[in-house]
Design a protein around this nucleic acid. Structure first.
Lengths: 201, 201
DNA sequence: TATTTTTGATAACAGTGTTAACCAAATTGA
DNA sequence: TCAATTTGGTTAACACTGTTATCAAAAATA
């Protein structure tokens, strides 16, 4: 008898409808304002039913995080397949990564835990400019000493900061405690690549 | 009469005591679990008095964010002063940046809005490995075609991912909407530096 | 001393995630 | 077919969150 099958199917549909309602919420108001109550409201059921399908709110977010990584991985694999040379592949994949992040911003923020109240905050902060000033002045000096004096210092500043922040935050996301001292090799690797391309004669 | 002065001084002390209590909270349980009630409890006053000194919770966090950027800027300026060559300065500053981030993790997370539930999440995600696999295989191929076949592919993978994530998240933090298409030049800049240092013959 | 201003506390509002208690309908077993 | 049991779902509550309106007491001013 197909009763059991039907039940499983219905359960699966229910689960899917929860995710769909949640996703609509995320798309319209961002995932930080997603709430169980709003989901329950959207699917026109009471709150506790959601807990029959997901252990907690975190499990729902985890679901989307997985989806996000899956989509990104697929995209990268597909893009890679369009080129033959590894160098061209890496470049195309980088652009695809960038495009994915901004075309699926909600996914990306979820995947990498970007908590985003900082968005409003960081723009109010004059103190950040002090930091930028120190970095930019040094980069200007480096450019002045190099053979390519027309290099865009502001571009290089952004690159420098982005590399540093990327290294740090990837490290923070992956491991809770202090970083393995050997992980500083990654820093050394990335930064020496940047510097040598900057001061190259 | 010094009454007015005393009042101002007391108000300032009060404000400082709020910040101190808040910071102890952040240090012991992380800033995501900071609450107005806990602060009020710690300073042994009722909740609303806090709103006489700070407009809202965000304003308290903003205070620490400013402090963080100030400390970081000072550190960078100090480290820069210890070297003469811009290249050496940029390298030393990079290491100082890294050290600051992990020695003052709470500051750093606040400054760049690292929302950090992802920490627990990202480790549960097998799907992330798919993405890693695509990237790593390409990097391996690039190394195989280069003259330096002993290059650490795992190191390069981390560098690659960190650069990409850094570019994206710095961009997301600074601007709300979609990124200026010209900002892709930063991506192009960073990634071509990485690639050329990888495949260099 | 009387009046105004300031200071702080109580209590509430509107949210959040989560769960215990309960009920009715559907399913199962005798 | 009837009783027992399981299942699906709801109501109501708990323990939190940020924020604010109301009000009493204390302090400063006239």
């Amino acid at each position: 008898m197909g009763i059991a099958e039907r039940k499983i199917r219905q359960k699966e549909e229910f689960r899917a409808s929860i995710l769909e309602a949640a996703w609509l919420q995320v798309l319209s108001d961002g995932w930080q304002s997603l709430s169980i109550r709003k989901i329950a409201d959207a699917i026109e059921y009471s709150i506790p039913v959601i807990y029959n399908h997901f252990e907690n709110k975190e499990a729902i977010l985890l679901e989307f995080t997985k989806e996000g990584f899956e989509k990104l991985a697929d995209t990268l694999a597909e893009v890679k397949g369009r080129h033959l040379e590894p160098a061209a592949q890496l470049e195309a994949m980088a652009h695809a990564y960038w495009d994915f992040a901004f075309e699926h911003k909600e996914y990306y923020q979820l995947m990498f835990g970007l908590g985003i109240p900082a968005c409003d905050r960081v723009n109010q902060i004059a103190e950040m400019k002090q930091m930028a000033t120190v970095m930019i002045s040094t980069i200007k000096e480096a450019i002045a000493m190099s053979s390519r004096k027309d290099t865009d210092f502001f571009l290089k500043y952004h690159t420098y900061l982005s590399i540093l922040h990327g290294l740090v935050s990837i490290q923070m996301i992956q491991k809770e405690g202090k970083p393995d001292e050997s992980k500083k090799m990654i820093l050394q690797d990335a930064i020496s690549g940047f510097i040598s391309s900057l001061v190259t004669v």
